[in-house]
């Protein structure tokens, strides 16, 4: 089985950044999310983040909030998440899960890790779980061979970046701006500085997310980061249908290949 390190190593071997696309499981329906995620993989996403729609998404802006609500009102259940992950893996894609922590707690941290690994998932991105509170997850991820992606932010101190990097595996998620998810017109000036600070502390690949929506922005971020993370823009593209999703992935895939050669 491939691992997250392989994803980034393969991109690096091509002197480019990896493209990471996000879509909530169950959006717009469970079957629909499987199809769109497959399209994202086929059109150039090196890795997909499968979101778990949650009732109280405090890190998300209006686009992803609305998608989560739509998924839940269409009947999404947590067990569907593993189906969606498995369908990505079956299609030859690589998937991690991005989830708020309460649904994992409720499912049982160990059981969640077990079922995610069985479905072919590679790890979990945890937007509201910091390493300080992650004892159970450290143990479960080690037991089932899953990667842990914690987040760092422009407000993180050097000590916290170092600590967060030590707790992470696979890749680190750098939030480009102080804020919530949502497409923005310009790449934050805080992002390159944050990535540079992270690199002082770790050799782990660094993905940059929050606010990316175009190939040009992807190219800019690919100039200093190892992965470009795109979420809200994919959610918006779903409203326009499969061709729009594929076109966005292709544009972004082009972008990560035209960045100033990936650093480090």
């Amino acid at each position: 089985m491939s691992t997250l390190s392989d994803v980034f190593a393969a991109a690096k071997a091509e002197s480019r950044a990896a493209l990471i696309g996000y879509l909530p499981a169950g959006f717009p329906t469970v079957d629909g999310s499987k199809e769109y995620l497959r399209s994202m993989v086929e059109a150039g996403c090196d890795l997909v983040e499968v979101g778990l729609p949650f009732s109280d998404p405090v890190m998300d802006g209006p686009t992803i909030q609305a998608a989560a609500e739509q998924a839940r009102s269409a009947g999404f259940r947590v067990r569907d998440l593993f189906d969606v992950v498995a369908s990505v893996a079956d299609a030859g894609g690589r998937a991690v899960v991005m989830t708020y922590w309460n649904p994992v707690l409720r499912y049982g941290v160990d059981a969640f890790a077990r079922d995610l690994a069985a479905a072919g998932g590679l790890g979990i991105i945890t937007p509201d779980l910091v390493p300080d509170e992650a004892g159970d997850w450290m143990a479960a991820s080690a037991a089932y061979g899953l990667d842990r992606t914690f987040l760092v932010a422009p407000s993180s101190t050097e000590e916290r970046i170092a600590m967060t990097a030590r707790a992470s595996s696979g890749f680190l998620y750098a939030t480009a701006v102080m804020g919530v998810t949502g497409a923005r017109d310009v790449v934050s000036s805080a992002a390159p500085e944050l990535v540079a600070r992270v690199r002082e502390h770790t050799a782990l690949p660094v993905g940059v997310g929050l606010g990316v929506r175009s190939g040009a922005q992807a190219a800019e971020i690919a100039g200093f980061a190892d992965g470009v993370i795109v979420g809200s823009a994919f959610v918006s593209a779903v409203a326009e249908g499969d061709a729009a999703v594929r076109a966005l992935a292709a544009d972004l895939a082009q972008g990560v290949r035209s960045g100033v050669a990936a650093t480090v």
Partner: peptide, 20 residues
């Protein structure tokens, strides 16, 4: 020191808020 009353409490917030 990290806000735990027994197993309760703590900080389940985005890293961006930890500094605050």
């Amino acid at each position: 020191a990290r806000g735990h009353f027994g197993p309760w409490g703590g900080r389940f917030v985005p890293e961006a808020l930890i500094a605050a």
